[in-house]
Simulated scan of single mutants.
Amino acid sequence: MNRSDQYIGLCRLLMLALLGGSAMAGEVPAGGAADLRAQVWAAECAFARSMAERDLPAFERHLSEQALFFGSSQVHRGKPAVLAAWKGFYEGAQAPFSWAPDSVEVLGDGTLAHSTGPVRNPQGELVSRFASVWRQEAPGQWRIVLDKGVPLTAAERERAKEAPAKPLCP
Rank of each mutant, 00 (worst) to 15 (best):
E125C: 07
F59C: 00
R135L: 11
P122N: 11
M51W: 14
G124K: 14
E65C: 04
A34P: 03
L83V: 04
D102W: 07
M24F: 15
W41D: 12
T111K: 14
L10G: 04
A155W: 07
F47P: 01
K79S: 01
K161H: 11
P80K: 02
P118G: 13
R120Q: 15
H76E: 07
Q136T: 02
M24P: 07
A154Y: 05
E65G: 12
A34K: 14
T111R: 14
W134T: 02
H62D: 06
E125F: 15
G9P: 03
T116N: 14
A30W: 10
G149P: 01
S115M: 11
V119G: 14
Q94N: 12
A25S: 13
S64E: 06
V104S: 07
L18W: 11
N121I: 09
W142Q: 06
F69A: 01
A25Y: 12
Q6L: 12
K166C: 01
I144H: 02
W41P: 07
A17F: 13
P80D: 00
L112E: 10
Q39D: 11
L14D: 04
I8Y: 13
P170Q: 05
L13A: 10
V150E: 10
L36G: 02
G117N: 03
L56Y: 09
M24L: 15
P96T: 01
H114D: 08
G9S: 11
A42D: 13
G32C: 08
M24N: 10
P101W: 06
F97H: 10
L10F: 12
H114P: 00
G124I: 06
L146P: 04
P57C: 06
R120E: 14
V145F: 08
V127D: 09
A84I: 00
A155E: 13
F70N: 01
E156S: 07
W86K: 10
L14K: 05
A93P: 08
V75T: 11
A34T: 02
L36I: 05
L126P: 07
A154N: 06
P167M: 11
W99H: 07
L146C: 08
V133M: 05
S73T: 04
E156I: 00
F130V: 01
L13C: 04
L36W: 03
C11I: 13
S50W: 09
K148L: 05
A160F: 08
S72F: 07
L56F: 04
